[in-house]
């Protein structure tokens, strides 16, 4: 553990927590992806999940969205089991390299997923998302023919179409050009949802969140606000350098 690490708390009062991860372990065969991972996010909080490749970030999100079951430990979203219908109603999820349904058009994807989620005023919401994310001109385009950036914008629209209270985002700015990144940052910052953003990039974490959970080898190595993180370094030391040092010492 790196100095400054906040001890993991598996029994603290988590009332008001939007996301709770308590001593979660998950193995893929013999490989331990998560080793007693614990952290929590309060309602409305925005937190970045930082870590090197293979740290367990995507696995954590998959556990929280109910696609993977922990081998041990407990995960809750909005106070619910991730596999419950209640959790599915309040959670929006954007995986890394998200790919919408390839044989449907952009609008069909939005309508289909909106219908599966039982979204009311679906037409209006779709129109708003198409405009906000500048996808209107591709409305009828097959997803298989979209550029990677437009596909990512559609994926984001699909993740938030039901106006979730809790958003789990895995590298949300991937493939986006700079103007679109700014548009998406503005959109995400305008949402009221609790957000857990998995990323490798500290600047993305800084733009989208104000708290950081750093994980390495399936366990939390640091947990705190970005300003606390900056104070761990020397004067004028880039925050990336501080994070890199932590990750190296953890591995």
């Amino acid at each position: 553990m790196v100095s400054g690490v906040i001890p993991q708390n598996s029994d603290s009062s988590l009332s008001g927590s939007a996301i709770e991860v308590i001593q979660v372990c998950k193995k893929y065969g013999e490989v331990e992806a998560l080793k007693g991972l614990s952290f929590n996010l309060q309602t409305g909080e925005r937190c970045a999940l930082l870590g090197p490749n293979g740290a367990g970030k995507s696995t954590t999100l998959k556990v929280l969205v109910g696609l993977l079951k922990p081998d041990s430990g407990e995960a809750k979203v909005g106070g619910f089991d991730p596999n419950s219908a209640e959790a599915r109603r309040v959670v929006g999820y954007l995986p890394e390299d998200a790919s919408p349904y390839r044989t449907l058009s952009v609008r069909e994807n939005l309508e289909y997923v909106g219908a599966l989620r039982g979204v009311s005023n679906l037409g209006e919401r779709i129109d708003r998302l198409l405009d906000v994310l500048a996808l209107r001109e591709y409305e009828r385009a097959k997803v298989g023919r979209l550029s990677r950036g437009n596909s990512q914008k559609l994926a984001l629209a699909l993740a938030i179409i039901h106006e979730p209270n809790i958003l789990l985002l895995d590298e949300p700015l991937n493939y986006l050009d700079i103007p679109t990144q700014e548009r998406v940052i503005e959109l995400l910052n305008g949402l009221q949802a609790t957000q857990l953003v998995s990323t490798h990039i500290m600047s993305v974490a800084g733009r989208l969140t104000d708290r950081v959970v750093i994980i390495a080898r399936g366990a939390v190595i640091w947990n705190g606000s970005i300003s606390e993180l900056k104070h761990l370094g020397k004067e004028d030391e880039p925050v990336e350098s501080i994070v890199a040092r932590m990750m190296v010492s953890a591995s």
């Binding site: 069909e108 309508e111 289909y112 909106g114 219908a115 037409g123 385009a141 097959k142 023919r145």
Partner: peptide
């Protein structure tokens, strides 16, 4: 690259959408 005849899922229940 375009879907000429768009399907309409608005107003369908989850089961009917599937």
């Amino acid at each position: 690259g375009e879907v000429k005849k768009q399907k309409n899922f608005i107003g369908l229940s989850p089961f009917r959408a599937v």
